[in-house]
Design a binder for these strands. Structure first.
Length: 842
RNA sequence: GCGGGCGUGGUGAAAUUGGUAAACACAAGGGACUUAAAAUCCCUCGGCUUUAACAGCCUUGCCGGUUCAAGUCCGGCCGCCCGCACCA
């Protein structure tokens, strides 16, 4: 009994595919195109299991579509700007560029051992000027189109390091390195006008039929279209009224306070003369700028002493608070609180002893009282003057009318979506191509001066923005007046690079961002595959970016990704010893201390619950690793790593190897004609072969890879049971094994290629068309019908397909078990679902 | 906190989308082969009842509802996961 030598086989076929340029593609108009793309990796240094899963999924799709006759574009590149390179630079005293490029080289070598069908000639790396120069031009074109503007916004400021911190770098309100309290600070930054496309980004989710519903729903909620009203509350002793946005103008008579965001201009102004308020606002800044931090903090407020008047009844006044849960970015940064009908407002009112006035009651019940739960349901207006007796929707319409007549408000559609702040005070990113001149103001870098190249000689780890600290880089003459001017020292958010890379892959060597011809041929991406964690931000930015490029004449499409598959995470149990130290899975057996096993979580370096793909590929081969990634869990669900599972996949690889090379039945030569008659078992197996082709093809189309593997295993189980002689078993076995090898090839390409050769084929399996099921063999003559009594299974019937309902019913009623279950009761009715079920109701 | 998702045997899961729950695997137990081990092959494998069965009852996180029929649809709860705009 021999064993499959994966080491030799895998390197052999990898080099043959490469030598023959099997996966290099050009725009061939004679074939249908198919663009399959996996989310490109950040070059962290080594591939992890999440990558292996992602790229295996993509490779199965690419190889399958290729076999089906598509001209398949399947590229790979590197999302190579980002924070980790700067952290590595500080910790290990290595230049970010060197660190990044070395990581890319190491990861490329690792990916190549996986046998992925990439067109490597199209490889791109976003940190190279040849890539980022194009997005500098795009930015300038966006600027011309009015899609870019500059405004002040709040950042996390580390006063010790003199730097802006990412949300990730703020831990419990403190800087992750300095440990000092983080402050909020206003900074002038560049913004992309994503909200110009709010309505379109929302509406165009509908036609994205090959996107998961949950992703479309998340994007819909993120964009957050709401209909409501702007309402003006006059403030006693001030000329300017306070403008608030509300989605519940109908509850205006239930207002009991107004609240401002801590960074609302009015709050800022009051703080100038109110030290206590200043302290409160500073306290609000402690938690950091992330929405999660703001919303989970305990709700607190500060009474400014101002009084706001009801817009339609100046005799009613409400205290004006500054509150930590009001967001400046949403609406106007100010709200009116109606405690009876908003839980957050109710909690706030109870805490500060404010009125709770019910203005919407179920069925208009006057005695309806709010306790500690706000009533947010539909009902009838009460205690609301001219709105009394109206339903919520009618009341909204009516009050908006009154507000508009009184010039105290207006109907409004509002979006939760905010404009995209793209400025980052970091070194390892794409320089923003702008020059600041004292006289001319903001001056774009002239096109002929692009790219603005990142300087190599920077000092990292010093307090401040590295490009600003560079002694000479920022000093340039103004392109407009020639006087001394200063470069923009911020760089782009790294989402900028990943918002258009899919287009660059169409023509990666082009002098422009991409050639129109290549983009028109290849785009949109037919199937995009990546982690669910990108469901909102990356995908939304890319959708916006594509529209912006279209507006600037770069492209003629709006949606970049026609199909989307979001994969789950790869998880593993966690282990720690009695000192609390995390242990690697392989350290568990050798630990001198008692080890406790924690629940399974996403593989992460910090918890050490990782399995290194390289060691798996070295021990079992890429095909085994790939098979395991696809076998048990459906792609969108989390995958539990198990050593036993990988062993099982390895045993199956060897089983296939033996089934071809050491068959237990006589294997006729390739091309032997079909015998005129087949024995029963052989004939049944032959039908299974064709059913499997049909089922596997259908499941591949739907990305049900775990089911694909199960179907193929069922086929091989049946083929292994063929043992007859002279009944055509050998011929069926050969047909079955050839089919099996073809069907498994997208998943285990090296082994399949080798077995294909061993079965006597000259041509590469990679160039062999996908097998087609013989439809005449798929037709079922008989069906098994379940017979139930009152919904409980009492027996089954084998009937000819499409048996008449009456005939089926009579047959069902004759089953002894059915008769017994009916007993002395009378049959009320019988439900017959043809070819499925007979249910006797008694 | 808000938004979205998920929950089925010891484990990963399948169930033609409302119609025979547990396919295919993993683990476990038993057996064959072997001097022995590995590998391989065969059998058993959701729970309970019964001497036994091609017998009955129960079972898809929990509670309730709709239906001839619910893992699937609806309502409420519990648990876990992802995202929350400067991680990528």
């Amino acid at each position: 009994m021999s064993r499959y030598n994966f080491k030799e086989t895998e390197t052999k076929w990898q080099s043959i595919w490469e030598d023959r340029q099997c996966f290099a593609v050009t725009e061939d108009k004679s074939k249908p195109k198919y663009y399959v793309l996996e989310m490109f990796p950040y070059p962290s240094g080594r591939i992890h299991m999440g990558h292996v899963r992602n790229y295996t999924l993509g490779d199965v799709v690419a190889r399958y579509k290729r076999a089906c006759g598509f001209n398949v574009l399947h590229p790979m590149g590197w999302d190579s700007f980002g924070l980790p390179a700067e952290n590595a630079a500080i910790e290990n005293n290595v230049h970010p560029a060197k660190w990044t490029r070395e990581n890319i080289a190491a990861m490329r070598a690792q990916l190549k051992t996986m046998g992925l069908s990439y067109d490597w000639a199209r490889e791109i790396s976003t940190c190279e000027p040849d890539y980022y120069r194009h997005e500098q031009k795009m930015f300038l074109d966006f600027l011309k189109e009015g899609l870019v503007y500059r405004k002040e916004s709040w950042v996390n400021w580390d006063p010790e390091e003199n730097t802006v911190l990412a949300n990730e770098q703020v831990i419990d309100g403190k800087g992750w390195r300095s440990g000092v309290d983080v402050e909020k600070r206003l900074l002038a930054q560049w913004f992309l006008n994503t909200t110009a496309y709010s309505e379109e980004l929302l509406e165009d989710l509908g036609p994205l039929e090959r996107w998961p519903d949950r992703v479309r729903l998340m994007q819909e909620k993120w964009i957050g279209r709401s209909e409501g009203a702007y309402v003006m509350f006059p403030i006693e002793g001030r000329d300017e009224p306070l403008e608030v946005y509300t989605t519940r103008p109908d509850t205006l008579f239930g207002a009991s306070f107004c609240a401002l965001a801590a960074n609302h201009p009015l709050a800022q102004e009051l703080a100038q003369t109110d030290d206590e308020l200043k302290g409160f606002i500073a306290e609000c800044g402690r938690a950091g700028t992330s929405e999660a931090a703001i919303e989970t903090a305990e709700k607190t407020g500060y009474d400014t002493g101002l009084l706001a008047c009801h817009p339609l009844d100046a005799s009613k006044t409400y205290p004006v608070y500054v509150a930590n849960f009001v967001l400046m970015e949403y609406g106007t940064g100010a709200i009116f609180g109606c405690p009876a009908h908003d839980q957050r407002d109710l909690d706030f009112a109870r805490k500060y002893g404010l009125d709770v006035v019910t203005v919407v009651a179920p069925d208009g019940d006057q005695s309806f009282i709010i306790d500690d739960e706000a009533f947010v349901g539909d009902g009838v207006l009460v205690n609301s003057d001219f709105l009394d007796g109206l339903g919520v929707e009618e009341a909204k319409t009516k009050i908006i009318q009154r507000l508009e007549n009184a010039d105290a408000g207006k109907k409004a559609v509002n979006f939760r979506l905010r404009d995209w702040g793209v400025s980052r005070q970091r070194y390892w990113g794409c320089p923003i191509p702008i020059i600041h001149c004292k006289d001319c103001g903001i001056v774009p870098v002239p096109e002929q001066d692009l790219p603005v190249v990142l300087p190599d000689d920077v000092e990292l780890g010093k307090a401040g923005n590295p490009l600003e600290l560079h002694p000479t880089w920022k000093d340039v003459p103004c392109p407009s007046c020639g006087k001394d001017a200063r470069r923009e020292t911020d760089t782009f958010d790294t989402f900028f690079e990943s918002s258009w890379y899919f287009a660059r892959f169409c023509s990666p060597g082009a002098n422009s961002a991409f050639t129109r011809e290549a983009a028109d041929y290849w785009l949109p991406v037919d199937q995009y595959i990546g982690g669910i964690e990108h469901a909102v931000l990356h995908l939304l930015y890319s959708r916006f970016f594509t529209r912006a490029l279209k507006q600037c004449g770069y492209l003629s499409l709006k949606e970049p990704f026609e199909g989307l598959l979001t994969q789950g995470m790869v998880c593993h149990e966690t282990y720690r010893d009695d000192t609390g130290k995390w242990l690697l899975p392989e350290e568990v057996g050798n630990s001198d201390r008692p080890v406790t096993t924690g629940r399974s979580e996403k593989m992460s370096k910090s918890k050490k619950n990782v399995v290194d793909p390289e060691s798996i590929i070295n021990s079992f081969g890429a095909d085994t690793a790939r098979l395991f990634m696809l076998s048990d869990s459906p792609p969108e669900r989390d995958l539990e790593w198990s050593d036993a599972g990988i062993e099982g996949a390895w045993r199956y690889a060897n089983r296939l190897w033996r089934m071809v090379n050491e068959p237990l039945v006589f294997l006729p030569d390739a091309g032997t004609p079909e015998p005129t008659t087949l024995g029963d078992k052989a004939a049944a197996a032959y039908i299974t072969v064709h059913k499997t082709i049909a089922a596997v093809s259908g499941d591949l189309d739907k990305f049900h890879f775990n089911k694909v593997v199960a179907r193929i295993r069922e086929l091989t189980n049946e083929l292994e049971r063929l043992d007859g002689e002279g009944d055509g078993s050998g011929w069926v076995y050969r047909a079955g094994m050839e089919t099996t090898v073809c069907l498994i090839s997208p998943m285990m390409p090296h082994l399949a290629e080798q077995l294909w050769q061993n079965l006597g084929h000259q041509a590469l399996l990679a160039d062999t068309p996908w097998p087609q099921a013989d439809k005449t063999l798929l037709i079922e003559d008989n069906v098994t019908v379940a017979v139930q009594v009152n919904g409980k299974l009492r027996g089954t019937l084998d009937l000819p397909k499409d048996t008449d309902n009456k005939v089926a019913e009579e047959a069902g009623l004759k089953i002894p078990n059915v008769i017994e279950a009916i007993g002395s009761k009378s049959v009320k009715k019988v439900i017959v679902v043809p070819n499925r079920i007979i249910n006797v109701v008694i």
